[in-house]
């Protein structure tokens, strides 16, 4: 059995102490989670300055609200939910992108399903820079769910709740986002070899 501390228990302890007014405990939470919050903000808003603003607003809001945190989700999910909502407020004046109507089988074909070069997806995915570029090329909603589920590793049920989806709908959206990523990875990979 690993002796590594349970990160969730550490967060819970810090959150409870923060709720009691312990600024040092809250500061520790900020250090532990600011990178994740900033990453989500950078993916959801347009500029570095806006992301910085979201980061500040998130933790200021969290400090004000920590007394009401009931631990129904993880601390990270709670913070990322605040960050997401803060980011979304900045997008109210921007028309949301329409839901991609591409049939999933067509998405699969574009991702390489049944294609002549089955190894190119796996080979391309080994290159970090290529993955980063492919992720950046995705629609915002696809980037968001991939960030929450695959990069942050949040539980599926918490991601579903955060996005206002049923668990089944979240899983379906996640798979479509992953297929879209595969399309982008193959495209970036083909550019790299041009």
């Amino acid at each position: 059995m690993s002796d590594a501390p349970d990160e969730g228990l550490i967060d819970l302890d810090l959150t409870r102490r923060s709720a009691g007014g312990d600024r040092d405990a809250f500061g520790a939470l900020v250090i532990r989670h600011q990178a994740s919050v900033y990453r989500l903000a950078r993916l959801m808003v347009k500029t570095r300055e806006e992301a910085e603003d979201v980061l500040q607003q998130t933790f200021l809001a969290a400090w004000r609200a920590v007394g009401g945190f009931r631990g129904e989700s993880s601390t990270r999910t709670w913070l990322l939910t605040i960050a997401r909502n803060t980011s979304l407020l900045r997008r109210t004046h921007v028309a949301r992108e329409p839901i991609d109507p591409t049939p999933i089988e067509e998405l699969g074909v574009r991702a390489g399903w049944g294609g002549p070069n089955p190894e190119e997806l796996a080979v391309a995915a080994e290159q970090r820079d290529l993955l980063v570029a492919a992720l950046a090329a995705l629609a915002p909603d696809d980037r968001e769910i991939l960030t929450l589920r695959d990069l942050e590793g949040l539980p599926g049920i918490e991601v579903a709740e955060m996005l206002g989806l049923s668990l089944a709908a979240m899983k379906s959206r996640l798979h479509r986002a992953r297929l879209s990523l595969a399309v982008a990875v193959r495209r970036e990979g083909s550019h790299a070899t041009d």
Binding site: Q34, Y38, E52, A122, A125, L131, D150, L151
Partner: peptide
């Protein structure tokens, strides 16, 4: 297999977020 390796690569290669830029972290503090 390609799809599985892509998902795994995303998790392992992109899972750890980059540090917040020092100036931004200082402003937050």
């Amino acid at each position: 297999e390609g799809f599985r390796r892509m998902v795994e690569a995303v998790r392992t290669r992109l899972g750890e977020p980059e540090p917040v830029p020092a100036d931004i972290a200082a402003t937050l503090r």
